[in-house]
């Protein structure tokens, strides 16, 4: 089979941050213990002029800045998110127009809770391998919603990453991908509701852990690999605790997941979470590095990827766009009052 992989990548994380302790103080909770319990010290917050479309455009533009691809050669754009600005009207058309990829391309928006972005990568892989398109643009991005006072409020964050998938000039070859899918209602948002609902502790063992461990085990079975064969591993990160626990369960060390573990500094970026983790690894990866990625989306499913970084990464102009570390460091703290205002908690009619 022909090779397929990541040709370039880019990410975007809004600058505003709110500290876990600031949110906790509003609700009369103990911020330090919540912060330690979740493994999240602060989360990113979109400003009023940022949404999934703007984050996706900035991430896609960052990916294009790093390579020499003509945007007209992008034959498909798939954006995974659970916070598309419109319920009906695609985000992908906005991105396509803003990067100059229109009009000869396929576009659709994806939704599969937090794994819609990795599902977009898989779709692009299929189209590239079949020869239907030359390059595909897969994006995972979210400006996650959380009801005021809900446990999710400490983690629901904003950010996203974009990957150009193709056959030539691959910087990270995708050796294999597989998914594990069941019907498990651990977290959802009903149509026309503003905030999601969740099954509390049910989101753990039967949902997050079962799907990631099953999918990851299947991947290593298919590939005949074991955790030690990988230099880096990225797991979906709804909080700072789950990915560490799931890594341990599977036999990966903290050292392997450290580079891709961004949730502690910016919170859970939902569809953006695994893609941002992978971007952070690509920021530092060297030729020959092998990367293991497993996302998770409630409802529920996981997508696993086995990647090998190629020599071409040396030619990728990574410095042409800010690294994840730079975006994590570039921040401005806001109070809960400002947070409430800009995230529309104060909406009234």
């Amino acid at each position: 089979m022909e090779e397929v992989g990541i040709v370039s990548y880019g990410a975007n994380i809004p600058r505003y941050r709110i500290k876990t302790e600031e949110i906790a103080s509003v609700w009369g909770k103990d911020g330090r213990s919540i912060s330690e319990g979740l493994g999240i010290s602060e989360k990113s917050v979109p400003s009023v002029d940022q949404d999934t479309a703007t984050i996706s455009v900035e991430a896609a533009r960052a990916a294009l800045k790093r390579c020499a691809i003509n945007p007209k050669d992008i034959g498909a754009i798939y954006i995974g998110s659970e916070s598309h600005p419109y319920a009906v009207k695609p985000t992908g058309t906005i991105v396509g127009e803003a990067i100059g990829a229109t009009p000869d391309l396929m576009v659709a928006d994806f939704e599969f809770a937090c794994k819609a972005g990795t599902a977009a990568i898989q779709t692009c892989m299929g189209l590239v391998l079949s020869g239907m398109i030359r390059y595909g643009l897969a994006i995972g991005a979210d400006t996650s919603q959380a009801a005021p006072g809900d446990a999710l409020e400490y983690s629901a964050a904003a950010g996203g990453a974009a990957f150009i998938i193709g056959k030539d000039q691959i910087v990270a070859r995708i050796n294999h991908t597989c998914s594990f899918t069941t019907d498990t209602p651990d977290f959802w948002r009903r149509a026309e509701r503003k905030y999601p609902s969740h099954g509390g502790r049910f989101t753990g063992a039967p949902a997050y852990f079962k799907h990631i461990t099953s999918c990851a085990a299947n991947m290593m079975n298919h590939m005949g690999t074991k955790p030690d064969d990988y230099d880096y591993a990225v797991f979906h990160q709804p909080n700072g605790k789950f990915p560490i626990a799931v890594a341990q369960k599977l036999g990966f060390s903290f050292e392997q997941i450290k580079q891709g573990l961004i949730v502690s500094f910016i919170g859970n970026t939902y569809s953006g979470a695994s893609p941002i983790g992978l971007s952070s690894v690509l920021d530092v990866a060297k030729p020959g590095d092998r990367i293991f990625v497993t996302s998770y989306g409630s409802g529920a499913g996981s997508d696993s990827f086995d990647l090998t970084v190629t020599d071409a990464i040396k030619d990728l102009k990574r410095k042409n766009a800010p690294s994840i570390a730079q975006m994590v460091a570039d921040k401005e703290y806001i109070s809960y009052g400002v947070y409430a205002k800009i995230t529309d908690l104060l909406y009234w009619e």
């Binding site: 002029d49 940022q50 479309a53 703007t54 900035e58 533009r61 600005p85 419109y86 803003a98």
Partner: peptide
């Protein structure tokens, strides 16, 4: 690239 304006809660969003 940013959101510039939206026509209320139901109208189009302008970037």
């Amino acid at each position: 690239f940013r959101r510039i304006q939206a026509e209320g809660y139901t109208g189009a969003i302008y970037y």
